[in-house]
Design a protein around this nucleic acid. Sequence first.
DNA 1: CGGTAAGTTGAATATTGTCAACTACCGTGG
DNA 2: CCACGGTAGTTGACAATATTCAACTTACCG
Lengths: 246, 246
Amino acid sequence: MTVADLHADHCGDKPDCKHGRGGCDDCKVRLFSVCAALEPDELEEMGHISQVKNFPAKTMLFDQGAQAGAVFNVTEGVVRLYKSLPDGRRQIVGFALPGDFLGLALMDRYGVAAEAVSPTRVCRFSRSTFLSFVDGKPHLLRRLHEFAGHELSLAQDQMLLLGRRNADEKVAAFLLNLQARYARIGAKSVTVPLPMSRQDIADYLGLTIETVSRTLTKLAKEKALVVVPDGVRLLSIDRLDNLAAA
Amino acid sequence: MTVADLHADHCGDKPDCKHGRGGCDDCKVRLFSVCAALEPDELEEMGHISQVKNFPAKTMLFDQGAQAGAVFNVTEGVVRLYKSLPDGRRQIVGFALPGDFLGLALMDRYGVAAEAVSPTRVCRFSRSTFLSFVDGKPHLLRRLHEFAGHELSLAQDQMLLLGRRNADEKVAAFLLNLQARYARIGAKSVTVPLPMSRQDIADYLGLTIETVSRTLTKLAKEKALVVVPDGVRLLSIDRLDNLAAA
DNA sequence: CGGTAAGTTGAATATTGTCAACTACCGTGG
DNA sequence: CCACGGTAGTTGACAATATTCAACTTACCG
């Protein structure tokens, strides 16, 4: 897993394109994903019921409120998960990175919409097939539940951020958080790629695009970071940590 | 289940007081709680491993970050779940009502703190005992996972509220939400009890106590509601719905 | 009663949002 | 290869919403 995997190479612009190569055995995210709970024979079966699929940037994986026909395991790329108000205001509730599972709740409708931020590759499972697969595999269900618990915990952190932190703190926490998540999947670096737009960041942090931009400029002036193309380089983790202080 | 059950009668001020009476059979929240997934014999066993416990208002059930020694099923009362920043800022991430389960994630540490808002009664389970109990009962684990998925969905709604709604919309959504939750547990009424303080409401909505107060006054002036002791009476659901518009 | 905690209201302030102009970047096509 | 057009991002001036600080009222409990 490298920073390069934040962008899946894809076959032209076709949203689906099955690659013959690569089963679950050499899947780069297997150990971070729900699949790590599986025995070798189960993993084999998992490979049979899944379908590799590519989504170019800006394409939608599924829409909020739609019948949940499938669940997904992200293997490459970045996905934004969001909710919208009727008047167009948008709140991004999370960015899914390689290893993340979409449709964790296993509910019959999607609670959020999902769009590829960068070219994305996923393992796709029909929801009903996946449900049958899970049935009778309590260890997999336990793993899914662990993931859900983790998601819930992240959501609660984000509530604290949205409700009680100012713009500086929000941006600092966001960058450190993203850095930590990249590190977990093996892309440890002080240069944090930001494949998502300023608007995405704003909609994630409950700010406007202008405030995000100003805050980054301010942090750059303070020598806490440098804005680079499609990312930031963190200069003073201390300074940022201090702002983000959990 | 009535509005009265939002306050548990309790034995003096002792935080623990086992009532001999009442097993799971005549539990008022059984059908709303995780227990509804259980077979009669399992329910019987559940009764044996649980302990009824009372928490007077303002007492803490558990603290953020503490070793998760127990999980709880709330049967009466209201509990606030919150996270705090080092400087004292607080974000309430949810209010638990009768039927709600605390410690759903089954993680080894509590991610949030929990305090009784009103006198509260719970079924308490040692976490390890509960884990053993769940082990080998996939239908119960499924039920817990459903609850977790629901919690996650609520958390995402709350993110949208915190990040993208103004004060009026926040308060209106909060009141309607609470009314709907009371209705689900059988306390349907246009008079919405507010056992929690204005500070609690503010910390839940990402506002200050003054803004909450002003907003309620404003909505009262608009004849959308009337502020009554320990609650509000909703006069114009339409007007509030319009503000809260999901 | 008297004292404390909770809630309301007002005036001033501040942070963030809005609107608008401007700049940088990137791919396309002449 | 450079010009063009479009998108994304930055910056500035001003406005608005919510916060802060403070006074005051009300309700509650001993």
